[in-house]
């Protein structure tokens, strides 16, 4: 093995000239060995290069650090904005009808005509903040602070029933149960049960007592226009918390008219007369509609 790389050993000084002097072209080899040791080292600007490294070291760490933080923050902002936007729920009542909104914690909101209401579905358990444009009645389940924000003021409660109206420059709040904190500009008022306050342009104009159990604007009838019978029955079931079986009726029937939401026997009577049908009472909460056999 040693023999194989004898020139390498000779170049490294491990063996002397005699060991390899019979190699072909030994004179040239000797010259190569001698003159190749005469080369200068490359000019290496050691200190300058180190300074450049120092510079990159600090900037590198800095930018890297900043980028990752920035990216993380952007991501968090992006995702939460997306989630927030996606989980925002909007309700708009039509100009001629009310709408009932059930919130995740069973709080109930009845929107008056031509009103808009918004809440966030996903963050509801952390933050019960809602937005209102127009008029609504709130029946709030007990829990964390429930906030209603409007353009003209804010109402905060823990669990109670109250009404809010915010339209044009008028901001009205009625408290039907418990107490609520009303803020409009700098004014802050605690409303007790059966109290009413109104602000105009942020100034309190009226504060008085009311003696009704819920706002009089809440309609006691449901209006239908060419609605499928199934939809009508569904509304009745909701209003009176009952069950109605209509499997024996013609499902294609449509209904136009209004049904009271506070008088079950009247509502049933209207349907019976409209379609010439009859119903059987199964128990207090269950009814079955059948074709009228007397005809």
């Amino acid at each position: 093995m040693k023999q194989k790389y004898n020139l390498a050993d000779w170049l490294d000084g491990k063996v002397d000239d005699e060991a390899v002097q019979n190699t072909k072209g030994f004179d040239t080899l000797k010259k190569i060995k001698m003159y190749s040791a005469h080369f200068q080292k490359p000019e290496f600007k050691k200190d300058e290069v180190y300074k450049a490294i120092e510079k990159k070291k600090s900037s590198h760490r800095k930018t890297k650090f900043n980028w990752s933080i920035a990216a993380t923050i952007l991501l968090i902002i992006g995702v939460s904005t997306l989630v927030f936007t996606l989980s925002n729920k909007d309700f708009t009542s039509k100009i001629n009808s009310q709408e009932t909104v059930l919130l995740p914690d069973d709080s109930k909101v009845i929107l008056a005509q031509n009103s808009k209401f918004q809440f966030n579905n996903w963050f509801w358990s952390f933050d019960r903040t809602t937005k209102l444009f127009g008029k609504a009645y709130f029946d709030v389940a007990k829990g964390k602070t429930f906030t209603v924000k409007t353009d003209l003021g804010t109402v905060q409660v823990l669990g109670t029933r109250f009404g809010v109206e915010s339209r044009d420059s008028i901001f009205k709040v009625v408290c039907y149960e418990g107490s609520v904190r009303v803020t409009s500009l700098e004014n802050e008022i605690i409303l007790e049960k059966d109290q009413f306050v109104a602000f105009q342009n942020g100034r309190k104009v009226v504060q008085s007592n009311v003696y009704i159990d819920q706002p009089d604007w809440i309609s006691t009838k449901n209006v239908f226009k060419n609605a499928p019978l199934s939809e009508v029955i569904l509304q009745l079931e909701k209003d009176y918390t009952i069950e109605i079986d209509i499997s024996k009726l013609n499902q294609n029937e449509r209904f136009t008219g209004s049904l009271p939401s506070d008088n079950l026997s009247l509502a049933l009577d209207i349907l019976v007369k409209t379609y010439q049908i009859n119903f059987k009472v199964v128990n207090k909460n269950k009814f079955i509609f059948v074709e009228d056999e007397t005809r």
Binding site: Y5, L7, A8, L11, G25, L29, I32
Partner: peptide
């Protein structure tokens, strides 16, 4: 390395 040195020398020569 030794092989490379050997070859380098032979080649240059």
């Amino acid at each position: 390395v030794e092989k490379r040195m050997q070859k380098a020398l032979e080649g240059m020569r």
